[in-house]
Simulated assay, not measured.
Amino acid sequence: MTRTMLLSLTAILWTGTALASEDIADKYPQSVLYNKPVEVIPNVWSSIGATAPPTYENAGHNNNLSFIITGDGVVVVNSGASYKLAEALHSEIRERTDQPVKLVIAENGQGHAMLGNNYWIDQGVPVLGHVDAAEEFENDAGQALQALQNYAQENAEGTDPMAPTLTFEDSYDASMGDVRIEVLHLGPAHSPGDTQVWLPDQSLMIAGDIAFQERMPPIFEGTCTSCWIETWETALEPLNPTYVIPGHGHPTNLAQVRRYTHDYLVYLRGKIADHLDEGGDLTTSYYVDQSPYTHLDTFEELATRNAGVVFSEMEWE
């Protein structure tokens, strides 16, 4: 990698850390995308979503939509939260290469990863998802579509929930052209079927929602935080990626996502363990100290809920 490329990536990382805020207006008003795609390393691009909840202003683009130009076609990671977001991303891809999109990979079964599936399927592009993510999407797609229609309004037009056309369990070889691409399910983490896209030759991971920075990780009912920590320590860390594109927030490095994901989970579980040892109950668990993380976007929306979910999990461990 040249010095110019390294300086470019450094600028992305520092700018992202400094500017992450829920109050920043749409950064790419001429497109339904929240951000114009940036080239993270050569031939790997990402359109970085807002680090806020989905709103009309960001059109539901609050996760990262990435693509890899391989020399023999394009691999897209995440179909997007709507038909229009998928269409907008495709337009950006066409401005950068004549190579056709040959595969779309969903990072999980949530709406922001899969509600745009029907755009890509209409183009004849296969969509790959983990079997557990596909099941979650099938169960929740109706509710996700209704939420999209409520907040995105006209930007939800054209969206018709469709399941992935391909599924995998442990791993999938998506190598194409000159690029080795390993699609991995490293283990239980943030949500069912969490998927990571690993480029071993570039030491880059498109991590999905196993990894967060800039915004607080959401912990869902049913999330096993001890499992998430174990998956991180035994499966993600040994890969030791140099570059990480998290599910939300700007491209960064392993140390940064470890600090705001793994270390946050360990910290919160420690606080809840102390709370349980002191005889605390669910009502008061919401107010355990999470002050080291108040600067993260979505802290106000998620901190107390996260504490309650972890209390309910640890109460029966």
Score class of each variant (00 low, 15 high):
Met5Asn: 15
Met5Ala: 14
Leu6Ile: 07
Leu7Phe: 12
Leu9Arg: 15
Thr10Leu: 15
Trp14Gln: 14
Gly16Met: 09
Thr17Leu: 15
Glu22Ala: 15
Ala25Tyr: 07
Ala25Val: 04
Asp26Phe: 02
Tyr28Ile: 05
Tyr28Met: 06
Ser31Asp: 05
Leu33Ile: 06
Lys36Val: 13
Val40Lys: 02
Asn43Ile: 09
Val44Ser: 01
Ser47Tyr: 03
Gly49Gln: 02
Ala50Leu: 02
Ala52Trp: 03
Pro53Glu: 14
Pro53Asp: 15
Tyr56Thr: 12
His61Val: 11
Phe67Glu: 02
Phe67Leu: 04
Phe67Gly: 01
Phe67Val: 00
Ile69Leu: 10
Thr70Ser: 11
Val77Arg: 00
Gly80Met: 07
Leu85Cys: 03
Leu85Gln: 06
Leu85His: 04
Glu87Arg: 12
Glu87Lys: 13
Ala88Asp: 00
Leu89Met: 10
Ser91Met: 08
Ile93Lys: 02
Arg94Tyr: 00
Arg94His: 10
Pro100Tyr: 06
Val101Ser: 12
Val101Gln: 04
Val101Pro: 08
Val104Glu: 05
Val104Asp: 05
Gln110Met: 12
Gly111Gln: 05
His112Leu: 13
Ala113Val: 06
Met114Asn: 14
Tyr119Arg: 01
Ile121Gln: 12
Ile121Trp: 00
Asp122Thr: 01
Asp122Ser: 12
Gly124Glu: 07
Leu128Gln: 01
His130Asp: 10
Ala133Val: 08
Ala134Gln: 10
Phe137His: 03
Phe137Ser: 05
Asn139Lys: 13
Asn139Glu: 15
Asp140Trp: 01
Ala141Asp: 11
Leu145Val: 03
Leu145Pro: 03
Gln146Lys: 15
Ala147Gly: 15
Leu148Gly: 07
Asn150Arg: 10
Asn150Phe: 10
Glu154Leu: 08
Glu154Asn: 11
Ala156Lys: 01
Gly158Glu: 04
Pro164Met: 00
Thr167His: 08
Phe168Val: 11
Phe168Leu: 12
Glu169Tyr: 05
Glu169Lys: 09
Ser171Trp: 05
Ala174Trp: 02
Asp178Glu: 15
Ile181Thr: 03
His185Arg: 01
Pro188Phe: 07
Pro192Trp: 06
Asp194Leu: 05
Thr195Cys: 01
Thr195Trp: 03
Gln196His: 07
Gln196Trp: 04
Leu199Val: 05
Leu199Gly: 01
Ser203Cys: 09
Ser203Trp: 07
Asp209Thr: 11
Ile210Glu: 01
Phe212Thr: 04
Gln213Asn: 14
Met216Asn: 01
Ile219Ala: 03
Phe220His: 11
Thr225Gln: 03
Thr225Val: 10
Ile229Pro: 00
Ile229His: 06
Thr231His: 04
Thr234Met: 10
Leu236Tyr: 12
Asn240Gln: 10
Asn240Phe: 07
Thr242Gly: 09
Tyr243Arg: 04
Tyr243Phe: 14
Ile245His: 04
Gly249Trp: 02
His250Thr: 13
His250Met: 14
Arg258Tyr: 03
Tyr260Ala: 05
His262Pro: 07
Leu265Thr: 09
Val266Pro: 10
Leu268Glu: 00
Ala273Phe: 05
Ala273Tyr: 06
Asp277Trp: 01
Ser285Ile: 11
Ser285Glu: 03
Tyr286Phe: 11
Tyr287Gly: 15
Pro292Phe: 09
Tyr293Thr: 06
Tyr293Phe: 13
Thr298Gly: 08
Glu301Leu: 13
Leu302Trp: 04
Ala303His: 00
Ala307Ile: 12
Gly308Gln: 06
Ser312Cys: 14
Glu313Met: 12
Glu317Asn: 14
